Simulated scan of single mutants.
Amino acid sequence: MSNNLNQQLKTIASLIDCKLGHPITGGNESQIEQLIATAEKLNHKPIRVLKDWKRFELCLNEEDEQLCREQEPELSKDGIYLVYSHNVISDSTFMVPAGGWVRSTFLIALHNQCIFETPNTNYILVGNGREVKISLEEYYLLMSLR
């Protein structure tokens, strides 16, 4: 295995490590049904409920952020975020099995501090999570996960 590939794998492992980043709180796990009902009222997008999640903030220079926003004008004005979880509780599309992992596309809106809306899906973040700032290079590494 090349040193470059080895380093990339180490970087990915550190990014998805549960201990990296500062703690943030999602929705209450005992209120999942209420949160699903709230998400259903927002729109008709599929819903995935996540536990043990991480919210990544993509940190870009002004020029790169402007280009990104021109390509995806619906992005949240509060920052460029995506979410990752290695513990999917449920998925209304049944594409991701319970206990599976998922990585979202970019945030367009955050509702009730725990419903992470992307262009195609509502992710309900329950329990404790973590937030991490990442570079463009780290973002591309996360996107390489299959």
Rank of each mutant, 00 (worst) to 15 (best):
N3I: 05
N4A: 11
N6I: 04
N6M: 06
Q7G: 08
T11Y: 05
T11N: 01
I16W: 15
D17Y: 12
C18T: 06
K19D: 13
L20E: 06
L20K: 14
L20Y: 04
P23K: 08
I24D: 11
G26A: 11
G27P: 14
E29L: 13
S30E: 02
Q31H: 13
Q31F: 08
E33N: 14
E33M: 13
L35F: 03
A37D: 11
T38L: 11
T38P: 02
E40K: 15
L42A: 15
L42M: 13
P46K: 13
P46F: 08
R48D: 00
R48H: 02
K51C: 08
D52P: 01
W53E: 01
F56Q: 08
E57G: 08
E57P: 01
L58V: 01
C59G: 03
L60G: 00
N61Y: 09
N61Q: 07
D64R: 04
E65H: 02
Q66H: 00
L67V: 07
L67K: 07
C68H: 02
R69I: 00
R69F: 01
Q71D: 14
Q71K: 11
E72D: 07
E72T: 05
E72K: 08
P73N: 12
S76I: 13
S76E: 06
S76V: 12
G79N: 12
Y81A: 11
L82G: 05
L82P: 08
V83N: 03
V83K: 05
V83D: 04
V83S: 09
Y84V: 00
S85N: 05
S90F: 01
F94H: 15
M95S: 12
M95H: 10
V96Q: 06
A98L: 07
G99R: 02
G99L: 02
G100R: 06
G100H: 07
W101H: 03
V102H: 11
V102F: 08
R103M: 15
L107A: 14
I108P: 09
L110P: 05
L110G: 04
H111A: 05
H111D: 04
N112K: 10
N112M: 12
F116M: 12
F116K: 13
E117D: 06
E117Y: 05
T121C: 13
T121L: 07
N122Y: 04
N122W: 06
I124P: 06
I124G: 05
G129K: 12
G129V: 13
R130V: 01
R130T: 01
E131Q: 13
V132G: 07
I134F: 08
L136R: 05
E137I: 09
E138D: 10
Y140Q: 14
Y140I: 03
L141N: 08
L141I: 09
S144D: 12
L145K: 04
R146C: 13
R146H: 15
